[in-house]
Nucleic acid binder design. Structure first.
Lengths: 188, 188, 188, 188
DNA sequence: GATGAATGAGGGTTCATTCAT
DNA sequence: AATGAATGAACCCTCATTCAT
């Protein structure tokens, strides 16, 4: 990937993340780099193309932080996973905003990339829950619902953190894990 | 509100919910009603206006289903709240899709409406958690994080349910409450 | 067909006929009428569309001047046909130029209309020649070749006439018929 | 003329002949040779330039096949001329297509080359007809009209032949000459 | 000679909005 | 209230051409 291509992808990520797809024009992107409009089309087929490429890159970065939880010390590893992803998001808030606020499902044109990713995440978590049940670690439950609940809780906390100046990632992760461990009620 | 106005709002809700704001044109809306484009502007200042009105209506409907949890039987009432909102969403999936997939934060132009609503919901849940802590029912925790986690879990489960043919709302609500009650681990 | 549509078709015919498809812009067309560019798209799907419509109109006008030669007095009727078409072309030289100089076969996108027309004309003439042979009026020959030769001779003479100030259509027709009647050699 | 220049001219002839001037891009031409876009401009001033050069080359090849009809055996020589040109066209159909379908007169920018050629051909034929009349071989007629008719008949037959798999050039030439000799009517 | 990244003028098209009827 | 023709700003994209290497 050439330098210009990287620059364009980065500029596009920032703009798309802040204004969305439709309120970002190709001119906005090239102007932010001080280059000519035509140059854009040397590297990307069209505006849809670069948006898809940005989302792909986002998914790739996220995936690289996700490691399969091995059975040795599942909780420690889960903790690392959550922490890793949240750290990435807090470091790169543009990326996080795209994941959280991309108008997923509203425009079939771009859904493929993120949809695939989310489905993978759902499946991953669901599989972990099922395995836990089989091992007798996780109580009996509806794994599909529970998986969604876990991902949802995680994502919403992520949204909170990226809005904060100096977010306490460790604290947030611990809080999420604590809910999973023992729920919210006072022990009797 | 006149009949035409209601018709336009309804048509717009359906279309915005399925194609998003930018892929829905004013022509699409009026054509779906078989009326002239000019008529649209008799009832709405512009396209932004009707979108905001649609979101406002959505928020209103949702709010009408949300009741403050009273201290009598908090769990029963929480249950009713969750059930009520999920039922509304499953009945009116266009509404649900707007809440879930509206490109919130990506386009500052329309954020006000939903942002206000979500902040209200976060505050509501946070307040409930705090009250629970004070009453000794809820264990010590970070209420802000926990509130976000609850809302996130709820929303993601909502997304799942509206994709299903005949969703089991009761089951989903119970599952969510069970997590809150006891977490996910097998009791030792 | 509404007034505007007719105006646009006429303006387009003139411009296409003088500059060709690619050197005529949509702006040229609307500016020649003093209307806005957007108006164009109220009446035509796109630039291709209006060009096709212009060609269709041309073909229709030409066809309306072509009458089947009846066996009564074939020569008189043939004469009338030739004269009629040449008169139309001389009256409407824009039309004639489109028929003669349209880049037929070079751009498959617009060929359909004129190709169909030319094939019809070739077939018509070929059929006439065959009938003449069967009736013993026309000498034995290759009707396909002869039909092409006739059409070609006619068209090239047409090109000549539309370049002249006050063309002698009758004379030209007579000349063409004379060749068909007796060839070019001095009688021995 | 350098090798590259010849290659470019040949590639351009093929492409222009099949897609026309505007649907052939400079990129198409250089890509068909696997060379860089910049190289093109080392040999040709611009796109117009190469098109003109292609047409010039076409005209040159055609002219080389045209010999003045000498008075010895005018018919034999006319026959050879017709045959020679048709053979060239059937051998090099790209060349023929450019001559036949070039949007002559629709775009004044490139008219000069072909116009000059056609005028020369018309003049040549017209002169031959006049000479024939003076010699008492050709009957009295309007030489201008007749010249056009001859060229037109010839060209249209040429169009037919280049569309056929294995065209019968001799037969076509004989048919054309027969018309000139005796017209189309059955001898009484 | 050859390259190919960069340019930017120019054209086609969409669509929200206006306004006279 | 309703209409729908007209508008024109805005945007995407193509492609011939240049130029530093």
């Amino acid at each position: 990937m050439r330098k210009r291509e990287r620059e364009l992808l980065l500029a596009a990520k920032t703009l798309f993340s802040r204004r969305g797809f439709y309120d970002t024009t190709v001119s906005d992107i090239v102007e932010s780099l001080g280059i000519a409009r035509g140059t854009f089309y040397q590297y990307f087929k069209n505006k849809d193309d670069i948006y898809r490429r940005v989302l792909e890159q986002v998914v790739e970065e996220l995936s690289s932080r996700l490691k399969l939880v091995s059975p040795d010390d599942p909780f420690a590893q889960l903790r690392e996973n959550l922490k890793g992803v949240l750290e990435l998001m807090v470091e790169d808030r543009d990326l996080a905003r795209l994941v959280f606020y991309h108008p997923y499902k509203l425009n079939p044109r771009f859904d493929a990339v993120l949809e695939e990713f989310f489905l993978k995440v759902y499946a991953l978590v669901e599989h972990a829950v099922k395995t836990g049940m089989e091992m007798g670690v996780v109580r009996r439950c509806n794994p599909e619902i529970v998986a969604r609940a876990i991902v949802g809780a995680f994502m919403e906390v992520g949204k909170l953190l990226i809005e904060q100046e100096s977010p306490d990632i460790e604290g947030a992760v611990d809080e999420l894990l604590a809910i999973g461990r023992a729920g919210l009620l006072e022990e009797r």
